[in-house]
């Protein structure tokens, strides 16, 4: 187990190092001078130069890279050019929306997908299975922002059960916050749940074909008992891979949904920072997201080892 952990940890660190180089390089090639962009068209050249010096933009690239990485490691993500506040503050404020939204959507999607996938697998080849496969096929094809628009039209504009967008902040109470995130979470969860249910179904069907299930059935277990005792746990491995991927996808992938609902999340922060050339925000936030993805992949790997002892060797 220790060797497994060590090798995974090394590959995690190497990935992070390479990713940071790539992000830094991409941001470097972006045309346009940030200082000139901030000061506007009428700025004097010497004012621009002074601002460049103040922001540290006149230093050599290697120094700036090291300063950035050193800062990231000590929790200093730089200061936003446009908001004039530490990037870390911006990110943590936006995470208060993005993280609950991601978890909410993921919880919804798992709560729907696991039982639905189970039913489809248990009833494979029968009408219930065909119906579920048809609906999930449709769920995958629906663009989530379109689904979101329809949800708003129905539940916010016509029925007035929810507000059409915006976020009151957690100060307004847990209930108000959750209510504001409900429609976005449902919109995000639909395609994710469809994918997850299909993965759950095929993983379970695959497991049910294994010899040890036949043995269990021969011992007199019913299919339901065999699923509960043996198949379900084994089918969870591919399901967890997808869940891990979906978590990181949702964290940043909510950009479009956040735009539909005017939510002040991480996605909108990046989106606005890109359009305003607030590159330090883009750089640090993207790095953080990549870190999250790599970390989640690492944790999923560890979880495999916990579920399946064979993988520890």
């Amino acid at each position: 187990m220790a060797r497994y952990l060590a090798s995974r940890l090394v590959s995690l660190l190497v990935s992070l190092a390479v990713a940071s180089l790539v992000i830094f390089a991409v941001i470097e090639v972006i045309p346009g001078d940030t200082a000139a962009f901030m000061l506007g068209l009428n700025a004097q050249p010497d004012t621009v130069a002074a601002l460049r010096a103040e922001l540290g933009l006149d230093l050599p690239r290697s120094l700036r890279y090291l300063a950035w990485i050193g800062g990231m490691l000590t929790g200093d993500f730089g200061v936003s050019y446009t908001y004039r506040v530490p990037v870390a503050e911006l990110i943590s404020a936006r995470l208060q929306v993005s993280l609950p939204l991601t978890l909410y959507a993921l919880a919804l999607s798992t709560a729907i997908a696991i039982p639905v996938g189970l039913i489809a697998a248990a009833r494979r080849g029968r009408p219930a299975d065909y119906a579920i496969m048809g609906v999930t096929q449709l769920g995958i094809a629906v663009p989530n922002f379109w689904f979101a628009m329809l949800l708003v039209a129905l539940f916010a504009v016509t029925l007035r059960w929810f507000s059409a967008g915006g976020f009151p902040g957690w100060e307004a109470g847990l209930w108000a916050g959750l209510k504001a995130l409900t429609l976005p979470a449902v919109a995000l969860a639909l395609p994710q749940a469809s994918i997850l249910a299909r993965v759950m179904r095929s993983a379970l069907i695959e497991t049910l074909g294994q010899d040890y299930i036949r043995t269990a059935r021969a011992k007199g277990l019913t299919e339901a008992q065999a699923i509960r005792a043996h198949a379900f746990r084994n089918a969870l491995i591919p399901v967890m891979t997808i869940l891990g991927l979906q978590f990181s996808f949702l964290l940043a992938g909510a950009i479009i949904i956040e735009n539909v609902f005017f939510l002040p999340g991480l996605g909108r922060l990046i989106f606005q920072a890109i359009t305003q050339r607030d590159l330090i925000v883009v750089e640090s936030t993207v790095m953080l997201l990549v870190f999250a993805v790599i970390l989640v992949t690492f944790l999923v790997d560890l979880a495999y080892a916990a579920i399946d002892p064979r993988l520890r060797r």
Partner: peptide
Amino acid sequence: MRGNDLIFAFPSLVIAILITAI
């Protein structure tokens, strides 16, 4: 293979928006 993993680790939508915005 490591290059593949790396690209998968990047939030595709964010990068797509970055490319088109730049």
